[in-house]
Design a protein around this nucleic acid. Structure first.
Length: 233
DNA sequence: GCCCAGGTGGGTA
DNA sequence: TACCCACATGGG
């Protein structure tokens, strides 16, 4: 892969985030299956609420595919209640546990030895697993080098003026990173985690970019700051 | 009381 | 392909 200016710019952004926030060491979970559960529970939910649901599952000794299959739908829904959409998410967790049992006899290590593209196709066929959740599972649970795109990633791409024209397609946003960065599990892991960290602590409201660690790389922030300076003078 | 948070599935045009 | 809506809790 030729080292383009885009690659250099992305690496500069990554370095700046790493300097500012340090290694994030994601995913916050004790097992690959817990990562998969968290990936489903975090859909359109605040992580603080997901943590409560995970704690409920842990207390009920339900952080295994077998235990998820054994629980009734209503009991599972009760356990994941704090993460919101509890009925929908209980159904999704059931679908994931059934898939792991049927396809891999719950052997996640064996699953991880599959080809990335094949695994992604299999995961997307499971009810409740879409592009982002599939990639969360591939990267954080199975250690495959794939770049996770979420709302924060798109927001950052937008602010950096790097959002593809077909901004609504997941694959275009993902291809932007994958085409310009060397596939590297550790780097992709840290990069996504840092984007989330930065977005949560700094860019929660799109308008504010003052003091942003990425300001030099961020045309949107520069424009906003210039406008602010003009209006205040 | 309102807005938003590490999305996805199903329906419609 | 693109858009809309349902799914729902909890913190700021």
């Amino acid at each position: 892969m030729p080292k383009s200016s885009t690659t250099e710019r992305l690496l500069a952004v990554y370095d700046r985030l790493l300097d500012r926030y340090g290694p994030q060491a994601w995913w916050p979970a004790r097992s690959p299956f817990e990562v998969m559960v968290g990936a489903i529970l975090t859909q359109a939910a605040a992580w603080s609420n997901v943590g409560k649901a995970i704690a409920n599952l842990d207390a009920a000794d339900a952080l295994t595919p077998e235990a998820i299959r054994r629980l009734s739908a209503s009991e599972l829904a009760r356990l994941v209640y704090p993460s919101g959409y509890y009925n929908a998410k209980a159904r999704k967790l059931k679908a994931l546990a059934e898939f792991l049992g049927d396809r891999y006899s719950d052997d996640i290590d064996a699953m991880a030895r599959g080809q990335t593209a094949d695994l992604r196709t299999e995961l997307l066929a499971v009810h409740g697993i879409g592009d982002e959740t599939a990639d969360d599972i591939l990267l954080y649970a199975l250690q495959h080098p794939i770049f996770v795109v979420d709302a924060y990633t798109r927001r950052l791409q937008d602010r950096l003026g790097m959002l593809p024209e077909s901004r609504s397609t997941y694959s275009a946003c993902q291809a932007f990173f994958m085409d310009h960065l060397k596939p590297d599990v550790r780097m992709f892991n840290e990069c996504h985690a840092l984007i989330v960290r930065h977005s949560v602590v700094h860019c929660k409201k799109r308008a504010e970019c003052t003091g942003c660690v990425l300001l030099e790389s961020c045309p949107a922030g520069q424009r906003e700051n210039a406008a602010r300076a003009t209006s205040s003078s």
